[in-house]
Design a protein around this nucleic acid. Structure first.
Lengths: 135, 135
DNA sequence: TCAACTCCTTTCACTTTTCAAGTTAAATGG
DNA sequence: CCATTTAACTTGAAAAGTGAAAGGAGTTGA
């Protein structure tokens, strides 16, 4: 399904998705047109889901990166899920098996905002907090 | 430092980083050239760290998404860190404060590979495993 | 008021993309 | 064995986008 050239294309696009098709072609030993048509195919197959940017969250003022393990007490998760949808600090809400029911990945601009978030979260569930201090 | 137009630009590029500068300009009510120069500025400021793609990991055959909390026994983390560097299944290795020393985010192609990984990891540290079952 | 500065637009030469047509090579079937 | 089909690539040309230079409008401060 995916040959070596496709792998190389995904690699190069992961490194820089704004590369021109001509340049991409040179890197994988194809013409720009051939590279472009492979990329289109990868998009159609759903292998490439989209093109995006990496943003420096610190420079945007979101300096606190947290993982929050959520342990819901109630059987009914709906109130929690509704809460999650409303919080824009949440980057991902993973349903997990293992320690806890959900794992939240969040970014906060300040300690105060984090405290507020945890207070609100605590109305629906218990949690364990992990703060990222390095990557 | 960042005005509303810059925010809009970041939003649009997050949605689609391969958009042409001309189109981006139209979306934020600028000419393509003006949009391009703002983007260059955002790059120079380090706000935009890079351009990348979202790849469907399932279609690449990496169907298991795991978070692994790592609790190192030894004071010396170096053997663990060396191990981490060598594993290509690891997407992120976060140093955390809270429950554990590190949090690993990984993708595995099979259960067997996960078991192998955990066996190897266990030579350097204890762990707690969480498997993502939904997002 | 004037100079300096920032941010934007216009213009134009140059590059890239897109689309159509042609080539090649491997697989299929009489 | 040869004709046919198909997939993947290349070539070429028109259309579209980019980047650099020049210039205009608005703001700031002496």
């Amino acid at each position: 399904m995916l040959d070596h050239t496709d792998q190389r294309i995904l690699e190069e696009l992961s490194r820089n998705s704004r590369i021109t098709m001509k340049e991409l072609g040179e890197k994988v030993h194809l013409t720009g047109q051939a590279a472009a048509s492979r990329v289109t195919k990868l998009e159609d197959q759903g292998v490439i889901e989209g093109y995006t940017i990496k943003v420096n969250q610190e420079k945007l003022g979101n300096s606190i990166h947290a993982f929050i393990t959520v342990i819901t007490q109630s059987m009914n998760h709906q109130p929690y899920l509704t809460f999650v949808k409303a919080q824009k600090e949440i980057i991902h809400n993973y349903k997990i098996s293992g320690d806890g029911c959900y794992l939240l990945e969040c970014k906060f601009p300040s300690n105060g905002r984090l405290v507020q978030f945890l207070t609100d979260l605590n109305k629906h569930a218990n949690y364990k907090l992990s703060i990222v201090i390095n990557k």
